[in-house]
């Protein structure tokens, strides 16, 4: 076996074929999990003793905010792989992750802002957590813009990888901002290493939705990667075979 699997990952054709199957599995599982988790969270979880029903926004806000950061980490891993192994697929991954990550960051910002109104009495404050999330959104947007501004794909990939790695500095700021500075935003309500402060009837649907949104992100990234691969490999024989087969 050895390193064969690693080299297979470097083949766009190998990845294109498998990603189609993985994408479908992720899509079905995501739909099932989100249906259960969201219905449970909205209708069956008890209301919060302080926030009432407004806390039910947690079942969307926390997973998408987690993902906005996790997708950036995935982009940073792709950037390192691109620099060290010069793997084409890593650049394809970066391109797909930027679009999906931007979507999730926008969703995290807007859902948090709407949740802020009944909780803090305002839609927005220039709080460290909110501002660093906004910067994350601009980083994603900058990456999308940078790639479309450079015609040479290899050069665009390298430039984006540098920007991704520079932007990694923002991630610990997002995570620790609520501990480093006095902020309106509460500390993490859900940690994988500690027993949750809320009852199981509240955190189980959150966990289900967290998994569901991860699978949605996987579905979207895989679908987007397949599109980027088709576009980049349009001159190769295997792409033409795929098109003729469809």
């Amino acid at each position: 076996m050895g390193w064969r699997w690693f080299h297979e990952w470097g083949s766009p054709k190998w990845f294109y074929d498998r990603a189609g199957r993985w994408q479908r599995v992720c899509g079905f599982l995501a739909l099932a999990l989100l249906l259960v988790g969201t219905l449970w969270g909205l209708g069956f979880a008890p209301a919060d003793y302080q926030q009432g029903n407004s806390y039910r926004i947690i079942y969307l806000h926390v997973p998408v905010a987690f993902l906005a950061q996790a997708l950036y980490v995935a982009m940073a891993v792709c950037a390192i792989v691109l620099f060290v192994w010069k793997m084409k697929l890593a650049d394809v991954g970066m391109q797909a992750l930027a679009v999906v990550g931007f979507g999730f960051t926008v969703l995290a910002l807007f859902s948090g802002s709407i949740w802020g109104k009944p909780t803090w009495g305002t839609y927005w404050v220039w709080d460290a957590r909110l501002t660093s999330m906004l910067i994350l959104g601009f980083l994603y947007l900058g990456l999308i813009g940078l790639r479309s501004a450079i015609k040479n794909p290899d050069l665009a990939g390298k430039a984006c990888a540098i920007l991704v790695l520079v932007g990694v500095v923002n991630l610990p700021i997002i995570k620790y901002s609520v501990e480093w500075w006095s902020a309106l935003h509460q500390p993490a309500s859900f940690k994988l290493t500690e027993k949750p402060a809320m009852p199981a009837s509240m955190w189980v649907p959150l966990l289900i939705n967290l998994l569901g949104y991860y699978l949605v992100a996987a579905y979207l990234v895989l679908a987007s990667m397949r599109t980027v691969i088709l576009d980049r490999e349009r001159g190769s024989a295997w792409v033409r075979e795929v098109i003729e087969r469809d």
Binding site: G52, L60, H61, L107, S111, I114, P118, Y219
Partner: peptide, 20 residues
């Protein structure tokens, strides 16, 4: 809080559905 909760889920559907 319905006026806050439902628009968030509507927006979620719009953004994720729109991306797909």
């Amino acid at each position: 809080h319905g006026i806050y909760v439902w628009p968030v889920y509507g927006l979620g559907l719009l953004v994720i559905g729109g991306l797909a």
